[in-house]
Structures are given as C-alpha cells and as structure tokens.
Amino acid sequence: MTTPFLRRRAVITIAAALLAAAGIALGLVLTRSQNPPRVDLPLQQVESLTLPGDSSRFDYASLDADRGLLFIAHLGAGEVIEVDTRSNQVVRTIPDLSSVHGVLAVPSLHRVFATATGANELATIDEDTGQVLRRSPTGDFPDGLAYDPAHGTVWTTNESGGSETVVDAATGAVRGTVKVGDEAGNNAYDPASGQILVAAQGSNELAVIDPVSLTVTRRVPLPGCDHDHGLTLAPDDRIAFVACDGNARLLTLDLTTWQVTGTDEVGQDPDVLAYDSAAHRLYVAAESGWVTVLDNQARHLTVTGRAHLADGAHVVAVDPVTHRTYYPVPHRDGGHPALLTMTATH
C-alpha cells in the first residue's frame, strides 16, 4: 500500500549509504533509521494461525465483526484469505486478484471489495461464497478503499494516479473520478459530514470531497507531516488520525476546526491504522514491524505502547466487540506466513 513511496525511499537509502561510506551525511542516515523510544506493548498473543500461500507481502485486512470473518489481502500471492476468527481457521482463499492491496468488508451488503492493483481493477466479492461477481476499472495503482453508505458507492484510492475512482456498490458501474493531487494516500468516509477524506500525500494535505458534486471542496494543510499515507477516523469525537510515513509521525486532526491538535512519534514507515471506537484505542502498524498503541481520552492521544511486534507486521485490524487485534505476517513459525491474534492486557 506504500509501494511507490517505498521505491523512492529505497533510492534515497542507497544514495545515503554511498555518502555514508564516504563519511558524508552519516548523522542523517543514522537519524532516519532510528525508531522512537520503546514502550512495552499492552498486548498478549493468544493465537497464531498458519496461513496458506507463500511468505510474500500482505496488505490491508478488513473484519466483518458480526460474523467473525476477517479478509486479508495477500498481495504477493494475488489472493484474499478469509479467516473465521471465532474458530481460528482459514475458510477459503479467493484467487485471481492481481497484486491485491485494499480489501473492505461491507456487512450490510454481504459484499467484500478488493483492489486488484496489478490489473487496475476493483473486484466485488460475494461474502457468502467468495465468488468474484464483477470487476470495475480504476485509475493507476488502486490501493485503499472507503464505503459511502449514503450514496451506495465504493471509493478506491489510486495512489500513483493521484485520484479517487467512485464505483456503484450494487452494479459495479463507475460513477466518476476525482483528482486529488500527484499521489493519493488512504481515504475514509466521514459519517457526520457525509464527505470523503483523502490523504493527498504528494502535497502533505488532506483533501475533502463532496460525494455529490465529486469535487474537492477543501484542502487542509498538515504541518509537520512528510508524505501522509495512513488515515482513519474517530467519528464520534470528530477527529482524524493521519500517519506520515516519511517522518514517522502521527497527526491528530480536529474535523470541526480543521486544525492539527497533536503529533506523536510512531515506528518507522507507519502504514495501516485501526481504531477501536468502543475502547477509544488506536493501533498504528508500521513497515518496520513496530506497532504503536495510543489511547484517546477527551480527544487527546496518549502513547500506551510502542515496540517491535514482528517483522512484516505493518497491517492491523481490530474487533470492536472482543477488542482483539489481528496482524498477518509473512514469516513466523517454520518460516510460514501467519496471522497473529493479540488481546489487550490493560
């Protein structure tokens, strides 16, 4: 889900390493590779489920909490893995989803949506059977997903295309495209305002879109953020959380004043965010394998844990009923991919 930026970072890293070998800019390289101070995670592992497929990259995961079904995008294998979290068993794999990145379960529709990034498509999947019902064209490099229940649309973030594709959730017809900038990060539906929010990562802004006119109505600057990619909301508190993968910062944004009200350090290359509305707890999973846990009290975040969980643990999903969190990782026992299930210790 951060592939273009990771390629850019790889070039920077190689160049920096050459300079460091010559004794130039060594301090910069060391600073960039450091993680923030460690704080013990308030998490305990309760399950480890071996997953099918090879030990390639995973991407987003989405949970239908009512049915206890977790859908995991196995990017490297081009398939979605469905897991029954109550029995801790794999239900099925859904193949032929080229370089699948985003996955989003919409329980009210009994549908799962997935971005087949390698084909620039949005796949609509029957949640009951795992059958791919239809495929809709998107922009370049479709990544994250949001669902607008008021208008019955699914929004795909086209990362390198810098746009949003709007798809009718019932028919798969493309309703329109909205340009947000040079690059687009994650998106989210705000139920209070009925607007779509998008991390315009190429300009370090949050783009606010009217879903009726399909136009950007506001651009919110994000001071202190380098390359905003991750995004999730605490809708009841009218705040948004934005992860900046260029400088490992998490911003808290007031959705009534459009002002940044807080900044926290997280693990290097933060990626996926998951918010437990019932527990008022935010999880930030990073490419570095670090997970940061933050508690939301009176619309202010406090870091309650921040440490390395597992290599490749850059994806997290949370169950708002059991408060368990789920982390698919490419290498675990015996080198096989696995799903780690964690419970909160406090």
Rank of each mutant, 00 (worst) to 15 (best):
T2Q: 15
T3L: 13
A17V: 09
A20Q: 05
A21K: 14
L26Q: 14
L26Y: 11
Q34F: 10
Q34G: 09
P36Q: 02
P37R: 11
S48E: 15
T50Q: 15
T50N: 12
L51T: 01
Y60N: 15
L69T: 07
L70F: 08
E79S: 09
E79T: 04
V80M: 04
E82P: 06
V83Y: 12
D84G: 10
T85C: 07
S87W: 03
S87V: 12
Q89F: 06
S98L: 08
G102V: 10
G102T: 06
V103S: 06
A105Y: 10
V106L: 01
L109A: 15
H110S: 13
F113V: 06
N120W: 08
E121R: 14
L122D: 03
D140Q: 08
F141Q: 09
L145W: 05
D148P: 06
A150R: 14
N158W: 09
E164K: 09
T165L: 10
G172L: 05
G172H: 13
R175H: 05
T177R: 10
D182M: 14
G185N: 02
P191F: 07
L197C: 04
L197G: 05
A199S: 14
A200P: 07
Q201R: 15
G202P: 04
G202S: 01
S203N: 14
L206P: 07
V208G: 01
L214P: 07
V216L: 02
V220H: 04
P221K: 09
L222P: 00
R238F: 02
F241H: 03
G246K: 03
N247F: 09
W258R: 08
T263Y: 07
Q268M: 11
D269K: 08
L273F: 04
L273E: 05
Y275E: 05
Y275M: 06
Y275K: 09
V284F: 02
A286Q: 12
E287Q: 09
V293P: 02
A298S: 15
R306P: 00
H308F: 13
H308M: 10
H314N: 10
V315I: 15
V316W: 03
V316M: 03
A317H: 03
T322S: 15
Y327Q: 07
P330Q: 04
G335N: 13
L340D: 01
T341R: 02
T341Y: 07
T343H: 11
A344Y: 02
